[in-house]
């Protein structure tokens, strides 16, 4: 208990850092994921290939490696002087977007054929079909997998802590290095992560209930 109370400011700092990192990367991954899924089912072959390459490459690369690319290679090539927080968001967002895109595409697969046919017979264009008819239904089916992806994103965000981003893992490292009881620090940090992941999965379960499709 001592460790938590004596260093409450540090813990709060790390907690807020993890929350911020997770929510910004989640937003990025969802936006990119929708784009990737749309590209994968689009009528333009170049976009389909691009999205497939994106998904295959990112799904099979360790996040730590992506962080290294983001921190050591990206600033030298394209964006000199970007903050480590932004780079971490980029790495996490891109990594998770591949999984989100895949989950959404599975969702698209589960939408009955007649839906798209009906949309087309009304004269809707491909973007209209996707935006108004198919993706809203696919998104609902994909809610459960996306929920577990967001939990995984929270867990992956810990890696940012070892690249000069303030988050719970960075605080664990700092407190362990300054001679606090390693086990106690671990338990408090673990409970903090437990709290975040629990809230996320409850949130998605609520959403699932709210948006369930009666099919």
């Amino acid at each position: 208990m001592h460790v938590l109370l004596d260093n409450f400011a540090l813990f709060r700092h790390g907690f807020v850092g993890t929350l911020l990192l997770t929510s910004v990367s989640a937003a990025l991954s969802l936006a990119l994921g929708v784009l990737v899924a749309a590209c994968r089912v689009s009528p333009v072959p170049a976009l389909r290939i691009l999205a497939t390459v994106w998904v295959t490459l990112l799904r099979n690369t360790p996040v730590t490696l992506l962080f290294l690319v983001a921190v050591f290679a990206a600033p030298r090539i394209l964006f000199p002087g970007t903050s480590h927080f932004a780079l971490a968001v980029g790495a996490l967002g891109c990594y998770t977007s591949a999984f989100v895109g895949e989950a959404l595409r599975r969702g698209v697969d589960s939408v009955p054929l007649g839906q798209a046919e009906a949309a087309r017979s009304l004269g809707m264009t491909f973007p209209q079909t996707l935006r108004l008819v198919v993706l809203p239904q696919a998104g609902r089916t994909a809610l459960a997998p996306i929920g577990s992806l967001m939990v995984a994103l929270t867990k992956n965000s810990a890696i940012a802590g070892s690249f000069d981003v303030t988050d719970l893992f960075a605080e664990q490292r700092r407190l362990s290095a300054t001679g606090h009881d390693v086990l106690e620090v671990f338990v408090w940090i673990a409970l903090a992560y437990l709290l975040i992941t629990f809230v996320i999965s409850e949130l998605f379960q609520l959403l699932e209930h709210r948006l369930a499709v009666a099919r």
């Binding site: 867990k155 965000s157 890696i159 362990s176 673990a190 992560y193």
Partner: peptide, 16 residues
């Protein structure tokens, strides 16, 4: 418990 925390936190605690 162990499923819902980042593996990195666990690995680091063991190392520390």
């Amino acid at each position: 418990f162990f499923r819902s925390l980042p593996p990195l936190v666990l690995v680091f605690a063991l190392y520390a």
